[in-house]
Design a protein around this nucleic acid. Sequence first.
RNA 1: GGCGGCAUAGCCAAGUGGUAAGGCAGGGGUCUGCAAAACCCCUAUUCCCCGGUUCAAAUCCGGGUGUCGCCUCCA
Length: 465
Amino acid sequence: MAIHLYNTLSRKKEKFIPLEGNTVKMYVCGPTVYNYIHIGNARPAIVFDMIRQYLTYSGYDVQYMSNFTDVDDKIIRAAKELGEEVPALAEKFISAYHEDTAALGVKKADLHPRVMDTMPEIITFIELLIEKGYAYESQGDVYFHTRSFENYGQLSTQSIEDLQAGARIETGDKKRDPLDFALWKAAKPDEISWESPWGDGRPGWHIECSAMVKKYLGDTIDIHAGGQDLSFPHHENELAQSEALNETKMANYWMHNGYIQIDNEKMSKSLGNFILVHDLIKHHKPEVIRFFILQSHYRSPLNFSESLLESAKSGLDRIQTTVRNLKHRMKESADLGEAKPWIALAAEKKQAFLNEMDDDFNTANAVSVLFDLTKAANQYLQESHSSKLALETFISTIVELGDILSVPMEPEERLLDEDIEQLIEERTAARKSKDFARADEIRDQLKDMGIILEDTPQGIRWKRE
RNA sequence: GGCGGCAUAGCCAAGUGGUAAGGCAGGGGUCUGCAAAACCCCUAUUCCCCGGUUCAAAUCCGGGUGUCGCCUCCA
């Protein structure tokens, strides 16, 4: 089954066909770096990383790029408040972004361009737009004239008149038309700025992505992605600029993730109802957060709460416990019994998992297949005899499918201290002599130390809390 | 006002024409010295409401209702 994905541009699921053979050019709008990221920001980082990694798993050579907006009003304001320089502040939060996303299992992009490093290309881009008659200078600012771009509104399925009707009226406008947007903003006094043909200033928000895509990936890319709230105006504007200049499609597929909500309200920095990843990972395993996010479809809105995260943790624990139990059985087991039906079952579940992923990256269903596989493995563990090959197949399949989602299914192996080993031996002896009071005492003692014991027909099994 | 998403069990969440996946929570049972883990069984005759199309609709069409969002910085 070939990969199909939902294209915002056509509002349909489409078969995924890259422009050039096996190469996939993918661009994801990255963060404005003036704060730590919240889990709403983490969602696109996680889901598009998952998509990128799945495309790679499927044999594509993915060129993955994600930008950092390191110059804009908010950063300038934050820097002023903190008494820091803009570049230093941006640098700090770029590092924080990498740390937080890495914890969440997100791989670094192949390219992480920044606005400050793309200034010549941005300026050239704007100059060419002016030359072609799509943009105009006005008192040191430069604006894109939306009405000059015929297809404006195609991504957000709105006509320019409808947009016009909803546009807010701005005071002291230098624009010819309320829908025009800034490509270049003249510098205010004491503000970080760059030289340009229109005087000192800095780029508007949308132009960076267009310039970066053109510079590093070319005029047309395969996938352009970001949060749903970016589709208008950000992506609409990017598309207009790029297609006006390049006279070709900017991207074949546009993908947008649904947002994370708190109490059914969008989580955002402006509303102040956000939870920073930086804080959340102090109390929760990052893989639980990733698992939680991937348990729903990337396009659906997703409510966040501590109790939902706890539910996700219970589910993930269940899978990880099964892997641990399979491994425990491996130590004892001889090659007894028929392995073939179980190997076939694992292969069948793996295929089902891949089919779900092929269908617009339906991780919610893919995860449910993982649970089916877990259940089958547990049923197998109920049997008194087991084959090493079957056990191995269960373990490797669960781990492999987890790896596709970048969610670790193998619990970390840390050996027990000697004194703990001794306590376990003492308990075993106590149980043998039917001194259950002492055995329970030791079990409680170990529980306080974070070690949970489980008695099985194949011997003692332990895990850390 | 314009545009878009969503509405499925106590909670979360899949499912675009063939008779309701999966997870969490809960109840009962099995196993166990007791536990733990796990397994088995039970928990939506029904998918926001009202019409329509069809042999057949959670799924398609029409009309409502609720809710979130975009149209202003936002993932």
